[in-house]
Design a binder for these strands. Structure first.
Lengths: 136, 136
DNA sequence: GTAAACCCCGTACTCAAGTACGGAGTCAAC
DNA sequence: GTTGACTCCGTACTTGAGTACGGGGTTTAC
């Protein structure tokens, strides 16, 4: 079943098309994020375009910063009736991302300051980075 | 032993002073990040100012974005002889943080675009956020 | 028919940084 | 002495997103 009939995949073929691992597909199924296909060929499950689309949507949402739990919620929304919910979810995610960016910037600035200090002092004096860790 | 003699702490007192949990102190000891004190009173360990300083250094380094593994390495450096090592570690961390910031900014921008699109379309048309997840 | 790739299933494990028990003993205040 | 807070110890568990087995069966290409 390596010879894919259009729109019919084994789990391995589906995984490759979606850019994930076989184990990942099984994991999503186990947690209910992806349905097991009704169709089988012998003992093997046969996946269709719907499952591939679903996997791609999951990946896209992950790239936007959503967790699998959040993605489950998002993919349960109806594009016509739940506009407000989706927008709220996106805005909440934006706020979290912004907050994290600020946090990282503070870290970066603190480190940059220490490195700069390191540049302007010479070898006989102790390392300002290590001293900053050691002192109050 | 709740009556702290200056520079002598039980594990609970030390944890409170350092702003961590008792379990965290034990965890750091288990992984060798913090030494067990030589001094005891009866069955209880007695910690000193050195351990408190060490814990504070760990915390400060964590706030700068270093992992416990990295902190172990940093705290093993000598402030007089290892200036270069410390500076390199800090610079590497800066690069990682910068990269992560950029990643998050891309996420944020993508989300902001979708939210903006949502604002400029009306209820009869489907939610652009959910459509973006579903389409290529 | 044979061998290799693949699938299924159930369970355990990884990563990093903790946190939470349960059981037993210790210490301090009354 | 009693009680409650605390300590110690060893082990298990959490979080989120996977990943890796082992064992057995199936499919495909030669």
């Amino acid at each position: 079943m390596d010879k894919e009939k259009t729109g019919e995949f084994t789990i391995g073929a589906l995984a490759r098309r979606a850019g994930v691992g076989v184990e990942t597909v099984r994991y999503y199924q186990r947690r209910g994020l992806l349905a097991e296909p009704q169709q089988t060929r012998g003992a093997y499950r046969v996946y269709g375009e719907a499952e591939l689309a679903r996997l791609r949507a999951i990946r896209r949402a992950q790239q936007l910063g959503f967790s699998l739990e959040e993605i489950d919620g998002l993919l349960a929304l109806n594009a016509d009736r739940d506009r407000e919910h989706a927008r709220e979810a996106a805005q909440a995610k934006i706020a979290l991302i912004d907050s994290r960016i600020r946090q990282l910037e503070e870290m970066r600035d603190a480190l940059a300051e220490l490195v700069d200090c390191c540049r302007h002092t010479s070898a006989p004096s102790p390392c300002p980075i290590l001293r900053a860790l050691s002192n109050d």
